[in-house]
Amino acid sequence: MQMPDSGSEISIRYSDLELSRAELYSTLGYGTSEPQADALALINRLLAEADNICRPRAGIRILDGAVEGPRLRLSGNWFAPGGIISHFLKGCDVFSIILATVGLEMDEWIQSYRVSGDVMEAFVADGIGSVVAEAVVDKTKKVLAQRVAKEGCSITNSYSPGYCGWHVREQQALFALLPKDFCGVTLTDSSLMLPLKSVSSVIGIGRDVLSQPYRCDVCRKKDCFRRKDS
């Protein structure tokens, strides 16, 4: 079994990411329609800029732990991710914390469109940032899956503070388990990660674990605009 470690960054490039245009359009709220000429030109221009600017970063820490009822222990620290998430992590005694970010450069690029005043440009740049952040998470999960496969293990889905009854405030305790300035991400007192387009997650590792569908299937946020089953 994979030994606990103290956490390290993985090497990741923008060109490694699987970015889907369909995902971007759905994030931007284009239900079944597609962008018309003017909007498409704007989107293409910003995508090309993003390609030049983005320096994504991600890291993985593997630690021992356990699930007891609705509670999760990671190394010596206890968390309260709630019943839904605990259910999916049950049975694992090794876990991973992953941190994924689009990086400071892209956050600053988005910020530049926030202040420039063109609301559509700001919206598209922000949407690209969100899609890239998710793609960095996906890539990091693949790297982790490959790493543990060598030991005959597989991984669960990823679960983040702030989802499914896990209070976002527990980001503080989670970050206490990561090296200082890990991947260049910092946490504010209000539990906000900077760069803004960053994601933290916990993943279970084990011999018989399955990656169960997560977000839309078990989430109670019925009015979420990204909900897949509505």
Partner: peptide
């Protein structure tokens, strides 16, 4: 009426601006 989406709303707001 669900005949336009958020980006279309924003393209309009942008033209208006």
């Amino acid at each position: 009426d669900k005949q336009a989406y958020v980006p279309e709303l924003l393209m309009a707001a942008r033209a208006m601006r």
